[in-house]
Design a protein around this nucleic acid. Sequence first.
DNA 1: CTAGGGTTAG
Length: 591
Amino acid sequence: MHSLGVKCNEFAFPSVFKACTLTNDFRLGKQVHGTVVVTGFENDEFVLNSMVVLYAKCGEIADSTRIFDAIPRRTVVSWNALLNCYVQRDSFGEAVELFQDMIVSQTQMYGEGVGVNQTTLSTVLKSIASLQASHICRQMHALSLKSGFEYNNYIVNGLVDAYGKCGQSEDASRVFKESQTSDLLAFTSMITVYSQDGQGEEALKLYLEMQSQGIKPDAFVYSSLFNACASLSAYEQAKQVHVQVLKLGFIIDIFAGNSLVNSYAKCGSIDDAERAFREIPERSIVSWSAMIGGMAQHGHGRLALQMFNEMLKEGVAPNHITLVSVLCACNHAGLVTDAKRYFSSMEELFSVQPMEEHYACMIDILGRAGKLDEAMELVNTMPYEANAAVWGALLGAARIHKNVDLGSKAAEMLINLEPEKSGTHILLANIYASAGMWDGVAKIRKVMKDSNVKKEPGMSWMEIKDKVHTFIVGDRSHPRGKEIYAKLEELSEPLRKAGYVPMVETDLHDVEEREKAKLLYHHSEKLAVAFGLIATPPGAPIRVKKNLRICLDCHTAIKLVSKIASREIIVRDINRFHHFRDGLCSCGDYW
DNA sequence: CTAGGGTTAG
């Protein structure tokens, strides 16, 4: 047109720029920019706004901003284009800053809550979610209400996602419920929030609810569902969801595949995890890390290291998480020398600088192996302040190696760092008890009473078909309670013959000795195992999970039960898996 | 005239 000598007025340019933006034709756009200058329209705000959008879309943020800054009145679209530009390159902080300028400028120009639209809010919510900027969530929520976008699907989804990522799952759920949306993405976001918040039951319930409303899922939701199963340790559930994905004809992509590996591992079946792992077509570092970490948690240290070598052979570079898992694997297998080698060479070999987590892991390894001096040396020379993980590792080491001094020092630091946790007091009491320091035990009991620290009640679960059976110490409310207690009674004689002596001294309950022995014998994990023995077919593995660390007395007893009853018993406690088989445990009595 | 959801450790 221009080359034909036809005069072009300012009304044509925005449309031309728009066409260039839509077709991603940056080259033509630049040419037209030149024409704008030649024809003297470079001060027209409509022309300039359309140029901002063009340059932003092409990722030329400097040019875009330069033009943008020179426009006296910017359109919402220009602001949005620039905002989106920042989000595209993960500059979320800059996006939020730009938005704050935008609010000031647009409010001056148009009045409150008017100069932004749903695209603005949606883009900014995504930035807030990525930054986990919880303090701005509420403001954004208020602004959305004020602007009248409350029930817009994009905004609902954005708010759910942002509240969730900022750790405010209750607010996320309130927005979701009040919106009464039937949008697939909003459902997916809400399911993800629940699963990331450890509310696996809610996640699975919402998935059912979604289907009963006739909303068809897509492949996105499954990674979160598998995670929900993982957090519930619900093996049957994981299998059911897995089967359903296949039935619906969705391909298990890399995200869902990685979650599935993690889920099967966390549900106690490392074999299923490995099968799922082998079926992932293009395994990423996340897939490998999940598999290596799973094997480590199951106590298969050597296999985990083999897996790591296989990974290196395939040319996949480990990241900091992989290396935590590798160290963890060494820890479970008692491979101190290997751990030291990996730890000291990780920066040189894999360009991963040891972080706090790696130090904590290494300190745990040294401590468990009884090298308490070396562990302390590392604590004193590392470039970090010792955190709860480090003191926790030292406390655990002190318990295993019966070191009262280190134990009380570590416990003191831990109680300062996490005063609300009862586990620290309990562990220290165990250390005192095993050293025969009964006044120490009594003191802790008093401190716990005075400071109102409650021992978190121990609970164990067993999943049979799709029903979850819950047990707490001494509880007789289970429908098959009578049989469960009879089974334990029946086991007491063979247990005694096999050398089991109740460890009453480690129990902190304020009751008489005989009463203690009874409580001990009816710990939740023992009840769950007894139930497993009567409720599953002979020879079937028994899977139990517990909300705390498994107790020492139960660990001893269950080892013997696995032999007496010829059963594989798998207990997932808060830290790891214990595979009891033929009188032994996969953790090698280190936990 | 621009915009939304999923994966690994401790």
